[in-house]
């Protein structure tokens, strides 16, 4: 809870809350609905809806048939996983040009996202949306996840997923508030600057181990407040502000004459 409280004021907190709410809604819907809204079971009707959505929201940049333009890449063969990642994290549709598309409150609900994913998946074979089983961190091995994360992810996303800088204003986002499903999809599809970690490189089980490692971070630190888990720079800053601040405050009190 401590870790959660510390992040409550994060600028992405509203986004996360919204995401959570949507995920819960979506989850309830998925549980109650007769057939899950998944790409592999997509109906022709879904694809049709998806196509309409695509043409209204995405075609300006990605081309009327998702063939890509000078503005944006072709989406033929990117698969449902890529669409689900981009749209469910709010990165797509993009609102303004910047160094990279940033996560924001999602603009399409679970159903629309599924339809869009189904449409793009129908254009060419690509990675499918992972199953709930595949992204369930509680079934993974956090120790192995740690070893994999360290070698493959930590250089951009920081040792425990606090995020980090890339060149020219781009950045690797923090991962604590990212759902297991989105983490999995990101590895599978390599959104934007991120390279692809396909199943030959990091197997589905290993991907789940990485999610398990990230889940482990929700417990915070054994040593108390995490201070953002940013490493020595933030530690040094706090040493000066809290440590030297309190101690000099004490010295001023000691040196002041009693009235």
């Amino acid at each position: 809870m401590k870790a959660l409280a510390a992040r409550r004021h994060h600028r992405l907190a509203p986004v996360v809350l919204l995401l959570l709410a949507l995920l819960v809604t979506g989850g309830v819907y998925a549980a109650l609905a007769p057939s899950p809204a998944q790409a592999d079971t997509a109906s022709t009707a879904d694809i049709e809806t998806g196509k309409k959505l695509f043409q209204a929201n995405c075609a300006t940049c990605h081309g009327p048939n998702a063939e890509g333009t000078t503005e944006a890449p072709s989406l033929v063969g990117v698969g449902a996983a890529a669409v689900d990642f981009q749209v469910s994290t709010g990165r797509m549709p993009m609102q303004m040009n910047g160094p990279q598309a940033e996560a924001k409150p999602r603009q399409m609900d679970e159903e629309q996202t599924a339809a869009l994913a189904a449409y793009v998946a129908s254009l060419g074979a690509g990675p499918a949306i992972p199953t709930d089983e595949q992204v369930d961190g509680s079934k993974g091995d956090p120790a192995n996840g740690m070893a994999l994360f360290r070698t493959n992810c930590a250089m951009c996303h920081n040792a425990v997923g606090a995020g980090g800088a890339l060149s020219e204003g781009k950045f690797a986002p923090p991962l604590w508030d990212t759902s297991g499903r989105n983490v999995y999809q990101a590895m599978l599809t390599g959104p934007q600057s991120m390279p692809v970690f396909n199943d030959a490189n990091i197997t589905p089980d290993e991907k789940r181990d990485i999610i398990a490692f990230l889940d482990e971070q929700d417990q915070g630190s054994a040593g108390g407040l995490t201070l953002g888990s940013l490493g020595p720079v933030s530690e040094g800053l706090w040493a000066w502000i809290i440590g030297i601040g309190l101690i000099i405050g004490g010295a001023v009190w000691i040196g002041a004459k009693s009235s």
Binding site: A147, L148, P195, A200, E206
Partner: peptide, 18 residues
């Protein structure tokens, strides 16, 4: 760190492997 061998066909475009 797994030590698995790498086939050229395993690598998709945009992949990176350590």
């Amino acid at each position: 760190p797994s030590g698995r061998l790498i086939k050229a066909s395993d690598l998709t475009v945009g992949s990176v492997a350590h």
